[in-house]
Structures are given as structure tokens and as C-alpha cells.
Amino acid sequence: MQWFSIVAIYGLFWVLSAFLVMPFGLRTPHEEGKKIETGHADSAPVNFRPGKIILRATLLAAVLFAIYYANYIYGWITLEDLNFFGKPPVEDLGY
């Protein structure tokens, strides 16, 4: 696997991980018992910590990528394993 492919696939895992870990630990003003300022959304978090989200996303992406790369090296799951519909029919093209 080329290094650029590794970076690109890790980046995809990181973005997915960021969206997965983002809602954990966030609390709304209603949950905290705070007053909502004029012009703010009711669902806006009061304790948003981007550094914690970045750390969690980085760790989760590293674990997911390690599993992906191990599967790439050892071939635990291949395309043939994911073919749920059987082999496609062979068409006679009349050649």
C-alpha cells in the first residue's frame, strides 16, 4: 500500500471517528440548568471541547485503521467474502 493511500484512508477514518465521538459528553443549557442567551440555539452545547474531540477521534481512527491495515495484510475478509449474490451470470456476447 502506498503512503498516500495510507494517509487518505486514515483521513477518512478520522473524519468518520470525529462525527462518531462528537456527541459524547456534550450537554445542553437545559441539562445544565443554565439560561439560554438570546439568539442561541436550544441545542447548542455549553461545554464544547474541540481538543477532547480531536484526541478521541485520533485514537479511534488509529484503532480502526490498524484493524483495516491488518485485514489488508492478512486478508481476513476479501471481496469474495462480501459477494452475497453469488457469481454474476456469464453473458454470451456472440463473439
Rank of each mutant, 00 (worst) to 15 (best):
E80T: 05
S17M: 05
D42K: 07
A66M: 05
T58D: 01
L20G: 05
T58R: 02
Y68G: 02
I77N: 01
I54D: 06
T58S: 15
G51N: 11
T58Y: 02
H30F: 12
G25Q: 00
E37Y: 05
N47W: 02
G25Y: 11
L26K: 03
R27A: 10
M22I: 04
I73N: 07
G39S: 10
Y69Q: 02
P50D: 04
L26V: 00
H30W: 09
S17A: 15
Y69K: 02
V63S: 07
I73P: 00
V15I: 15
V21E: 05
E80Y: 07
L26N: 00
Y74H: 08
T28S: 14
G25P: 03
L60P: 01
A70W: 08
P29Y: 08
V21D: 13
K35W: 04
G33W: 03
V46H: 10
M22V: 11
G51D: 11
I77F: 05
P45V: 02
T58M: 04
D42Y: 07
A18F: 15
G75E: 03
T28Q: 07
V46D: 10
S43P: 01
V21C: 05
F19T: 09
H30T: 09
W14Q: 02
P45I: 02
I54A: 15
I54G: 06
Y72F: 12
K34G: 07
A61K: 03
L64S: 03
Y72L: 10
L16M: 12
E32Q: 13
A62S: 14
V46I: 14
F24V: 09
V21H: 01
W76V: 05
F19S: 10
I53V: 15
W76L: 12
Y72G: 00
Y72W: 14
F65E: 04
Y72D: 09
F24L: 10
I77W: 03
L20S: 09
Y68H: 12
R49K: 13
A41G: 08
A18G: 15
E32F: 07
I54C: 12
V15Q: 08
G39H: 04
L60D: 08
R56T: 00
T78F: 07
A41F: 13
P23L: 06
A61R: 02
L55V: 14
A61P: 01
V21S: 12
P29E: 06
I77G: 01
V21I: 12
I36S: 05
G25W: 03
T58W: 01
T38S: 14
F19P: 00
F19W: 10
M22Q: 10
H40Y: 13
Y72H: 12
R49M: 05
Y69N: 01
H40L: 07
L55F: 14
I77S: 00
D42F: 12
L79W: 15
P50I: 08
R27K: 13
G33L: 06
R49N: 14
N71C: 01
I67F: 12
I36R: 14
E32A: 14
F24T: 12
G25S: 07
E37V: 04
S43Q: 06
G75W: 00
K52E: 14
G75I: 00
A70M: 09
G39W: 11
P29C: 07
L64K: 03
